Computed example of a mutant assay.
Amino acid sequence: MKIVQLEYFIEVVNRNSFTKAAQALHISQPSLTATIKKMEHDLGYQLLKRSTKEMTITEKGIQFYNHAVTLVQQYHQTMERMYDLKLSQTPKIKMSTIESTAYWVSLVIQQHHQKHPDQHYQITETLNPEILAQKLVNFELHLGISNDQIRHEDVVSIPLYEEDYVLLVPEDRFTQQKSISIKGLPLIVPNKPYQVRKHIEDYFTHLEERPNIVMEVERFEAATNFVHQGMGYAVIPRVYYQSRHTQHLSAIKIRPTIKRTIYINYARHRQYGSHVQDLVAACQHYWGTI
């Protein structure tokens, strides 16, 4: 069975119509119907039930569809990687970052590119440490930045720097205070899946207090905008505040402090080229850890 046959079947299921699928695939409907019938004959079971009024998918068809989607995705990912190898003797470095590290990572990559001008990069965000670990061990990423140590036997997790969280407030608030308690203050915090939210909740659990959360957001940039609008105060990493040069907002030290460590991670058993090794070393050198 060929990949194109799987793609035809997926298109029919997604559009729930042979006619619409044939139009999208730019083939004739009889040809598409014949392809699906041949697949069913080769498999020995029915994938789709057809009538003059509707088309439905069988239980075995559903299972086949799920496997087909996975196979087609893997095929295209593999072809993309092979194409990368054809384009250059130095395949692109795939690196995952987190929002708060965007500024310094861009500086490091700029310096790295000056040393390796033929190098290409693909930068993404992966916020869940477990997903990041899986992508590293599955060779989907070369490197990944995380705000917690990844405890996985096949992942090396190297600390780069420690930073504290600060309270982002309008510059005319708390002007006489060098530090502040955030108990009871209206807080703008990240949504629950994010590690930063977990750090904040763990902080309040340790204090045996409940945070006064007035808004939950996806990104620090959104939190910053809402502080500008007077919706509350945001708890953000200090390095993010320092890199943004946020106008008309001040960062006040939180009392007692909330801290976190930023790590760079890579797969333990993967053989990395010199360009990737240089990038890891550049990140460490930027923060003075080597």
Rank of each mutant, 00 (worst) to 15 (best):
D278T: 02
A223W: 03
N191K: 14
G144K: 01
S100I: 07
T97Q: 14
D42K: 04
P159G: 05
E80D: 10
D84V: 04
L43V: 10
I145P: 01
N225P: 02
T124D: 04
Q277K: 09
Q5A: 14
T33L: 10
Y8V: 07
Y161F: 15
I258E: 02
K2L: 14
G44V: 08
R219C: 12
G273I: 09
I158E: 12
T90L: 15
M215R: 03
H113G: 15
H245L: 13
Y165W: 08
Y240I: 05
R81K: 13
K115A: 10
H199Y: 15
Q114H: 12
Q29K: 08
A281F: 06
Q195V: 13
M231D: 09
Y240L: 05
I200D: 01
L6V: 06
T97W: 04
M215V: 08
V239K: 02
Q229C: 07
L207F: 03
L43Q: 13
M79F: 10
H67I: 11
N225W: 02
Q277P: 03
T58F: 08
Q89H: 12
K192S: 14
T35P: 01
N225D: 09
Q114M: 11
R255M: 11
S100W: 06
R238A: 02
T246D: 13
A234S: 06
H142E: 14
L132Y: 01
T224P: 01
R219M: 15
L6W: 07
H248Y: 12
Q277V: 11
R81V: 07
Q89E: 13
Q89G: 14
K192N: 12
R197E: 09
H142V: 10
E218A: 14
T19N: 15
P159W: 09
V169C: 01
E7V: 12
P91R: 03
L87F: 12
E216R: 11
H275Q: 11
D42C: 03
E201Y: 07
S250F: 01
H41D: 11
L167F: 00
S274Q: 10
Y45T: 07
K60L: 15
Q114E: 14
I93T: 10
V217M: 06
L87P: 08
Q284V: 07
T70R: 15
E171M: 13
S96V: 02
Q111A: 15
K92H: 11
H245M: 13
I3M: 11
L107G: 07
Y240H: 02
I182N: 00
M39E: 07
E7Q: 14
F220G: 04
R270H: 04
